[in-house]
């Protein structure tokens, strides 16, 4: 997972690229694999949830997202966690620049 967090005035901009094939049911069937895709993503800043999304098979492969949240300070951490359909989960961290 690649995360970039940058302070912009009174808000923090976060760009994240999650590594995941995001195989839809149709793509999976063609490839003879099982469908699997990220279904839920959250981001925290110093323990407080600042971003939250439930997702589907129709996000692109290796999903990219950009979002903003209020506050945040340089040097603080942004922690992003995703869960996929099969229950795999991954957490990544980045410091706010």
């Amino acid at each position: 997972m690649r995360i970039k967090a940058k302070l912009k005035g009174d808000k923090t901009e976060v760009k994240v690229m999650m590594k995941h094939p995001m195989l839809s049911y149709r793509q999976a069937k063609k490839k003879g694999k099982e469908a699997n895709f990220i279904v839920y993503v959250t981001a925290k800043n110093e323990g407080a949830t600042v971003f939250e999304v439930s997702t589907s098979q129709f996000l692109s492969k290796n999903p990219y997202m950009k979002f903003y949240f209020k506050g945040g300070k340089k040097g603080e951490e942004v922690e992003i966690t995703w869960v996929d359909l099969k229950g795999n989960t991954k957490t990544g961290k980045a410091k706010i620049k």
Binding site: F58, P63, F67, Y68, F69
Partner: peptide, 18 residues
């Protein structure tokens, strides 16, 4: 997708879809 906007969240999002 469904986005919930937390207290400190800002409803300004970019994603890439199929």
């Amino acid at each position: 997708a469904i986005f919930d906007v937390p207290e400190r969240g800002i409803p300004d999002y970019s994603v890439r879809i199929k």
